[in-house]
Design a protein around this nucleic acid. Sequence first.
DNA 1: GTTTCATTT
Length: 757
Amino acid sequence: MEKLRKVSRQEYLKKREKKMLDEIRDHIDDEKYLFGGVNLTQTEYREIRYKKQIYNLLKNTTDDEAYDREYRIPESHDDHPEKRFAAALQRYRDDPIDESRKTRLSEQETWEEHQIRKVTMKFGSKNRKRKQDDHDFVFVKMPDRAAFRNERETLPIYSYRDDLLRAINDHRVLIIVGETGSGKTTQIPQYLHEAGYTAGGKMIGCTQPRRVAAMSVAARVSKEMGVKLGREVGYSIRFEDRTSEKTVLKYMTDGMLLREFLRESDLASYSVVMVDEAHERTVSTDILFGLVKDIARFRTDLKLIISSATLDAEKFSDYFDSAPIFRIPGRRYPYEIHYTKAPEADPLDAAIVTVLQIHVSQPPGDGDILVFLTGQDEIETAEEILKYRTRRLGSKIAELVICPIYANLPTELQAKIFEPTPQGARKVVLATNIAETSLTIDGIKYVVDPGFSKMKSYNPRTGMESLLVRPISKASADQRAGRSGRTGPGKCFRLYTVHHFCNDLDDNTVPEIQRTNLANVVLILKSPGIKDPHKFDFMDPPPTEALLKASELLYALSALNEHGELTKVGRRMSEFPLDPMLSKMIVASDKYKCSHEIISIAAMLSVGNSIFYRPKGKQVHADNARLNFHVRDVGDHIALLKVYSSWKEADFSSQWCYENYIQVRSMKKARDIRDQLEGLLKRAEIELISNPNDLDAIKKAIVSGYFPHSARLQKNGLYRTVKHPQRVYIHPTSGLAQGLPRWVIYRLRSTCGKSPN
DNA sequence: GTTTCATTT
């Protein structure tokens, strides 16, 4: 009975999908353009063939287990952190400003003072001593050259130099465990160079997950070696290649090495590849693992170094056929960890109270406070409350300088966290995860960790990505704690219980490759001729269904043929470092003679964050400014194009951006991406043609990339996606929110929709 | 009915 119902529901869905496809055909005059030059009957035909292929694939994987593998989709947490945050935010917004609540406030005041007095009691119990990592290289001051030799020799790694070189000589793959501060990133490549691994012009490549890291480490090493940056020592990141013929030590982002691999699939110009910060498990590092492991099998002269933080060392070793592990101690200060005795009902409130407690009970000037919060909204709220409460305490306490920091904060405001704290005051830094790995702030002694962060997750069933507030992992909690006391011993206040830490938190954060849309990954894996991404040697395989979903999308975009092989279109698409739907859009623009406009749109869309600046208190002005770019119900893509061309007409002026509530940084990034895309057109055999007035042509090109994300207006005013029966609605900030066109194409988590008519 | 942690090619 149960089974029957299931099957009939599937059939029902299938029928409905077909019906919707039929309806599309009825509503669109030019049926060719909606499906990128393929008429519908053919699409249906392909769909059937593709379903068959998936069926075969599944049959070949044999075990149902693989198919049913647990998807790493975060389940809704029992106590709904999001709801709790939302409620807390609301409460605080209503709270302090309202005059009629004075009685309640004075009660709160008494309570607060009471709390502050008993501060030492509260965190007295349950200490756990931990060691602490010392320094990254990003903001290290450069001493003069004469001092370098000495300084190099005082690094912890120096005493292991000979053993290390012997181990590398004896093994093809070596796992190196060394905490930050051991000097591995700067020293190992130099040791290898001194030992002759760069003879014959071969390079030593060292990958970093972040651009700044690659740049600054290269700068540091070139100074240590006394050579000009970009000559013997260089770096290679997107938009900037500072290497030359002479370069032997090359620092680069992991994504960059991946792109290089697509051009030179045996990495012949390298004698050593060092994958640094491997524990961060970025998608690029994870793919590199598989590729590099494969290369090392036939290139016996290639040395492989995987360097990671302590926790996963055995796992890395297992993956690389029991490669030996080499441990190097770091240079650390001790830090204490304090837990709460009982769980906190309201993490934001607890964090604020803790900050005030620390501030009042500890002498000013002994160290600053770092608080980890989940996002911009929460940081802004916390800032308001803290300002309000410290103002009320007035001269009873020392000054508290509040510094918010998150990636989307305009750069000039970000600089504030690096300003030294004034005499007699204390700085409290309210940060997102950005302070966990990407930047280090001097002078932090106290860390307040409520134990949550926002995480991207991908649901392969619906093809939807979402951002959820989730408890962090143990590794992440330790990383946060380690941020205390870079300058001396520190303290970390965890706003949860020891029990929660030990029993509820995962050991490690789920690797990104298991919670992301894999379309791009599959396209990359297809290009060098890896026959089956399902058989790719992932260290942590992504869910089978996510891979299938990705292949299915690429097939629909005609990047793969019915045998799962890369087509000509697919090859042209893979030239672009973009999401496949955007790449397809560009490839299609060749046909519609509007590549000039489409690459602008693609660049604007692929700037990670929003182009529009919407500061608190000025939302109305910002929204009005944005409306200037929407001419009637023309769609948000066209609006983005207008933003870009207006900026260009204004000579790329920053002033213009301020006047129009546009993020300068995002626009500059869009311009960089656009320039790069323009350069790549030739490789993909696309002509650069401008056709700014034919909006229909532009829309057609967009649709041929984005048709898998189309949704149709229903009678009740909501939209329903075509591919999966999923209810969606247009974000109120979209230019289409009022018009409600019959059809839209959409981009998830974003303010973009557009009508195809 | 009003958003979005962090990265990267």
